[in-house]
Design a protein around this nucleic acid. Structure first.
Lengths: 236, 236
DNA sequence: CGAACCTTTGATCATACTCAAATGCTGTGG
DNA sequence: CCACAGCATTTGAGTATGATCAAAGGTTCG
């Protein structure tokens, strides 16, 4: 979410730094503050009974840390957030942001867009995990991430920075690290993409999209195609 | 969501009826209205590229049809809603509900609770699909549904009404109908639960909870257990 | 320079899918 | 009321995707 300078200056805020692995927000606690990532990457994750970890998603500079917080009031959040790389977060007071959103400004439209994106993405992720096989999930994951990196202007000349480990990707997609490695190797051999030296390079985006849309053979068909509901354009 | 009578009377609203299978809201369109299910069941579903269908969840009488709508403004919704049984929906004007929520009334707390529940459930579903095996997903699904049915006061003397078909359950959990049948049969033989004559009966809830918490063997452990983040109590 | 972690690879195994056919249920028209 | 069509459920045999376990290289960092 971007905030225009004039409105931002009127908000109480402060910036904090985090080391890799450090907790930014704790699962099952409520929070009165609302933040956006200034620099670095973070992960939103959820601990499940039995010590399993599910990674909901990766946040890149510019992303909001907990969009949910704007609307769930004092209820505890269902996941935690921690720093993936060194990161800085700019914190705002949730109540004052909410007040700002009651008007009709740009902020309102922006927030509603990201809210819709966030919801849609959550839905989409759940759907893809259930309805596609490993290469499809991986392709889908990469495409969503890259879309966000592009929108944030974080494309490098030769690709994208990609700090997550394969273990983290595995925990995000519900796969084992070994299988993530195999799937990535296969994509590299097919000339689709490559992740090396913490850098992601896409060689054949068209094929990547094809792979993401491949259905599990198990899936029955229900009428005609529909779009994914994932907003692809930026908010105006 | 419940609305207290005094505030409700001041809202413009109308009630519509739907036949089984009829669309209530269309995927990828935006909506200005906000509804709650008066009677009958509905499903929220998402069409995926290739004609696959993902069912996000089942709505029971009392549930809000599109909680998202309150916060995503004029952006299109990422899923559709259609009637599972004969159903009636009470529609409100989204804008007027939002105005109501800017105060500090009971409605605000209720809505925030359900918002948190909705978010948490979405997260949880995505996590479970990736991190548990078929019996666990099924158990989790049943428990969440039954929790809602109980809260809505929809328990029957001998169990719960259960109109979904196994095909719909399969589309919700990312399984095939054949495998859902096998898993249900196995649960019935173990004396855990039974679905017969559109009625769900739970014989051993404790074991059902155990099954829901069984981790996939693949899952590595990360520190201690945490709760699921799924709110189990009703809003005060 | 060593320790800890991450990635890769290989052999084996099981969960869940495929395809197919049989059975049961429901509603509709003769 | 019965026959039938159309779904939904069940069962079985075979298969494959992705998991397990293990061990060997690579990185990174103190």
């Amino acid at each position: 979410m971007k905030l225009s300078p004039d409105s931002v200056s009127s908000l109480r805020r402060n910036v904090s730094s985090y080391q890799p692995g450090q907790a930014i927000l704790h699962q099952d606690k409520s929070s009165e503050v609302f933040g956006s990532l200034r620099s670095g990457w973070a992960i939103a994750y959820k601990m499940l009974p039995g010590g399993r970890r599910h990674i909901q998603g990766f946040m890149v500079p510019g992303d909001t840390v907990v969009l949910d917080l704007l609307h769930i009031g004092s209820n505890p959040i269902s996941f935690g957030v921690s720093a993936l790389t060194k990161a800085t977060v700019c914190w705002f007071n949730a109540a004052s942001i909410k007040r700002l959103l009651q008007g009709d400004g740009v902020q309102k439209a922006e927030t509603e867009f990201w809210m819709a994106y966030y919801f849609g993405g959550l839905n989409h992720r759940a759907a893809m995990i259930g309805h596609t096989e490993a290469p499809g999930r991986l392709a889908e994951f990469i495409l969503e991430l890259v879309g966000r990196l592009r929108y944030r202007g974080l494309a490098k000349s030769d690709g994208y920075e990609f700090p997550p480990t394969q273990l983290q990707v595995a925990d995000c997609l519900g796969l084992t690290p070994a299988y993530v490695s195999m799937t990535l190797t296969s994509l590299r051999k097919r000339g689709v993409l490559e992740i090396r030296d913490r850098t992601l390079r896409i060689f054949n985006e068209h094929e990547l999209i094809q792979i993401a849309n491949e259905k599990k053979q198990s899936s029955r068909n229900f009428g005609a195609d529909k779009s994914t509901g994932r907003p692809s354009q930026s908010p105006k």
